[in-house]
Amino acid sequence: MPTSAVFTGLDWHPVHDARELVAYPFMQHALAAGTIVAVTAGVVGWFMVLRRQSFAGHTLSLTAFTGASAAGLAGVPVIAGYYLACGAGAVALAAASGSRRSLSRESAATGSVQALALALGFLFISLYHGLLSDLDSLLFGTFLGVTRDQVLVLLLVAAPTLALVAVAARPLLYASVDPDVAGAAGIRVRLLGLGFLLVLGISVAETAQITGALLVFALLVTPAAAAHRITARPVAGVAVSVALALAVTWTGLALAYFSVYPVGFWITSVAFAVYVVARAAT
């Protein structure tokens, strides 16, 4: 396909194009929502990669899909479904992982939760045929129709979540790198682990609203994994992770706006390119 057929909306004039990008309220909302989501995903993703809980993150994103389809079936707002299902998923994962931190056992338990979430999601979809028209955006994301209220809810959830992570950052880092000594130093390692899974669930629920349930990874894992490769300093690492997530989101939204392809595709592709560059360069 020739470039002009893909980027149908593009003037190929940077100033015009940039101005057009922020001209319409729906695009302003999408950019605001994307910014909130990128900051959250960048911070929480950095800790998730450090804790090697990407599999748990992936499981929660499938839970987000289950929650959204259940909400559709029950006739409640899809966004409520995202938050509730991810919260419940986080608690289920914490319970399933047991008391001892054993990776293999954890991933077996996590996999079981994941399979159940996916099966339930498809059950709800098939029970409620009306939702099928929205299936694409549930799975692969949309930036159309992000409302002002939705942006507000994103912000109201993200701000206290990030504040919580900032306050608990040092104990969380300690418990993540060195759980035995952290426990001896008086840190409630188990409780902190549950708390982090809840924060992860919230971040997944937020990210899924932009990227769709299946492509949450592009924002949650890829910028964070690249940041871990780029620097081993914790504070700088979180900053790089956020910066990359923002760059990926903004670029992805702009490309989606001017082209015929969906936003999830662009965000994922840009994120992948960033990771490849980070890998090659470090």
């Binding site: 060195d178 952290a182 081993a232």
Partner: peptide
């Protein structure tokens, strides 16, 4: 784990004030 990308100096620092909450 070989994939733990945190500097040695940060690990030592955790021993000093890693259990403290707050920014």
């Amino acid at each position: 784990d070989p994939s733990t990308r945190i500097r040695g100096v940060d690990v030592v620092r955790l021993g000093l004030d890693g259990a403290r909450f707050g920014v």
